[in-house]
Simulated assay, not measured.
Amino acid sequence: MSGAIHFSQLRHYLPLSTFPRAQLVELAELARIMEPADRSLIFEAPHEPFGESLYLLAGEASAVTTTGVAAIIEAGTPSAAYPLNDGRFRSVTAFSEVVLMSVPFELVDLMSTWDQLAVVERRSVDRATAFFSRGIPRRWSYGFFPALRNTPAARIEELMQSFVPQAVQERQVMTHQGEPAREFYIVDSGTALATRESPADEGESIELAQLGEGECFGVEALGDAPVSTATVSMISDGMLMRLPAEDFRRLQTPPQQALVAAAAAIELISTGGHWLDVRQRGEWQNSHLPGAYNLPLQEIRLHAGRLDPTVHYVCYCNSGRRAAAAAHILTQIGIAASVLSGHYRHVGGE
């Protein structure tokens, strides 16, 4: 196996399996395929490649777990569905005809956060709520994602709630080139046309793009020079999701949270606190901290009643990103929660 990987192959791996198609396409374009020689060392703690997630696509690898147990990982088996460097193993060595895939860890973690927190089909709550009219449908392309992806994880829900649905009609002009840009738009349905006047062509309009579901315009409103660089008008009736620029800027500052390092977190647990793993259920089943309770991020509002309101919870994930979003939600509903800084593997797993 060599060369590019098709996005559909990523559906066999976690946490990638639940990602919308557009996110898988982006990851597939960034994926690197590697074929290490038999008996060569893939990694050894404490020198794991933290900046990338390594998946076993083909062959067999030998490993030593963090508890010192030898193991064989075979491509296509359940144990190979997770990154080799997810904290389970002290070392991993290529054993036989190994093919690896490397994808950027930060991007995978960021996509996991948005997938669990903002994708409509992932949230098990009443879909009649205002938030659900402003979540992210899987049918969307992810053209909007680069403009919003750096929003602090604890603010993503509020960001989605700040979008206002706006019905639009064919030929309605939404932005004018050269005029102040005050709002950011995502196309929910219908099609928009972006054009730009060219002085060199005596003011004739040049078609830049037709924008469909999940694509965006007005990104200038979110930057330091909020002036529209194109005229955008509707070429069919439809629905837009409109975000005022002032709401976007307000939500780029993370809320104050109790961020705790491993030693302080262990102290909290020893004095009656509980670990709360907010990753996907499969991730928790694969590896987690001793005694940790799993409540996936997308289920926290629905199932917060399962938690003991008298207990302090230390939320964790693979980076602190999903944990920050979870702790913010718990704090809002009156449950004491802290965020474990960084990856839970810095504490130890089982």
Rank of each mutant, 00 (worst) to 15 (best):
E183L: 10
L54G: 10
T93G: 09
P46L: 09
A130M: 08
G291C: 09
Q332F: 05
G178C: 13
M101F: 03
S287D: 04
G214R: 00
V119S: 03
R149S: 11
N150Y: 09
E60D: 13
Y13P: 15
A327L: 07
E197L: 14
S141H: 07
A225M: 10
A118Y: 08
A327M: 08
E197G: 14
A304Y: 06
Y55I: 03
P78D: 07
Q177W: 09
R134E: 08
T113C: 15
P49D: 05
A153R: 01
A80C: 06
A337M: 02
L208F: 09
R149G: 07
R196K: 13
E97Q: 14
C216W: 07
P137K: 07
Q332N: 14
A70V: 11
A181L: 01
R345Y: 01
W275D: 07
A327R: 07
V347F: 03
G76Q: 04
E213S: 14
Q252E: 04
M234P: 06
E215H: 15
S270Q: 12
M174R: 02
L107K: 06
I335G: 07
I156A: 00
D277P: 13
R171S: 13
P146W: 00
N85G: 13
V99C: 09
P296S: 06
L41M: 13
A58Q: 12
S102M: 02
A264Y: 00
R123A: 00
S91Y: 04
G218N: 06
Q116S: 12
L84H: 03
L57F: 00
I72P: 02
H346G: 15
M241Q: 12
R249S: 05
L107I: 11
I206L: 13
A128P: 03
S236K: 00
E246S: 09
D224W: 01
